[in-house]
């Protein structure tokens, strides 16, 4: 890589430009009245779901472990915020701070059982635990509100749509850089070594299970924060947040965006949400076809471009360079 310095400089410039654009976006959108407010809301959702997708990718892309129960931690985070603000009257910021902790504790318990299994069995056990938690939340009517969920989560006056967007963006950026640090730390390298070659990792003295568990907990914590943020954005929590089909969303996002980079899943998630709303805006009945479009897109990616959009871009970029 001889053009390393120049490319890393452009990378920095585009990165900062992007952050600046993201920050001024709502100011610009607010000029468009109600339509603008709608897009601010959508953008906030995109940021939150991007965080959720990135959190999964810590296990999926970097850890090489397929989890079909990740939504459980997302949901636990959402219910933490909902229950603490509604039933315990805690201020939002405290509740939001608690979300990653409850999610991490849940992930620690679930993960302790799950990391003992490999490959497909790991995936199925995460699915089983995810569904188990889903069913518990669904059936515990007196505590979680069951099928009705918890409605009317309070929102502090100062957090209007625009402020809440900025709030989420700041949280997202903090999480992004924390994740970047984790991934490039020695811990991150060990996780990648385990993914590439578990025997070798064991041989060089990495405690595979402990590292995987720790990674699982970290990912769960970030998912919990994302869940808490979504609960606050929607101002309610419901059992569907824990359902296995919700777990599939970040997997699809990672697949579309590319799972071997940090930002890939975030891009994938944003693209997917945008496509869905775009279809709906063209004509409401197009939403009916959304799942078919999504399914077809995934088929194409699985069969022809398993490294996702970022991989595709890198391939094109490489060809362009040479």
């Amino acid at each position: 890589m001889d053009h390393m310095t120049s490319s890393s400089r452009t990378q920095w410039i585009s990165g900062i430009t992007l952050i600046v654009i993201l920050f001024v976006l709502p100011v610009f959108l607010n000029e468009f009245g109600r339509t603008g407010e709608y897009w601010i809301w959508v953008s906030t959702e995109m940021i939150i779901m991007a965080l959720f997708a990135m959190s999964l990718n810590l296990i999926l892309g970097f850890g090489g472990m397929v989890s079909f129960g990740h939504a459980a931690f997302f949901g636990v985070g959402a219910y933490t915020v909902a229950l603490l603000t509604k039933k315990a009257d805690l201020p939002l910021f405290l509740a939001l701070a608690a979300a990653p902790f409850t999610a991490a504790i849940t992930a620690a318990i679930v993960g302790w059982f799950c990391v003992r299994l490999l490959g497909l069995y790991f995936a199925i056990l995460t699915l089983a635990f995810g569904q188990l938690l889903y069913m518990i939340v669904f059936q515990w009517y007196t505590f979680t509100g069951g099928d009705d969920g918890i409605l009317g989560i309070p929102r502090p006056e100062i957090l209007g749509p625009t402020n809440f967007y900025w709030f989420c963006l700041v949280l997202f950026l903090i999480c992004f850089f924390v994740m970047k640090m984790i991934v490039s730390s020695s811990f991150g390298l060990s996780i990648k070594t385990i993914r590439e070659n578990m025997e070798r990792a064991k041989f060089i003295g990495i405690n595979v299970r402990r590292y995987q568990l720790l990674n699982f907990i970290i990912a769960g914590a970030f998912a919990g924060l994302a869940g808490g943020m979504l609960a606050e954005l929607n101002r309610f929590a419901q059992p569907d947040f824990l359902h296995w089909s919700k777990s599939a969303e970040p997997i699809l996002a990672s697949l579309v965006g590319g799972m071997y980079s940090l930002a890939g899943p975030a891009i994938g998630s944003t693209v997917l949400i945008f496509l869905k709303i775009f279809l709906q805006q063209i004509h409401p009945s197009m939403v009916e076809l959304w799942a078919i479009v999504l399914g077809a897109a995934i088929l194409v990616v699985v069969l022809f471009a398993p490294s996702g959009l970022v991989g595709l871009y890198q391939n094109i970029y490489k060809k362009f360079q040479s």
Binding site: S14, G15, S261, L262, V310
Partner: peptide, 20 residues
Amino acid sequence: MEHGKWRVLLTLLLVILSCA
């Protein structure tokens, strides 16, 4: 490893905004 991802994001955002 993270090569080019910012630019992807940036392009994407612009596309999204204009479409929106």
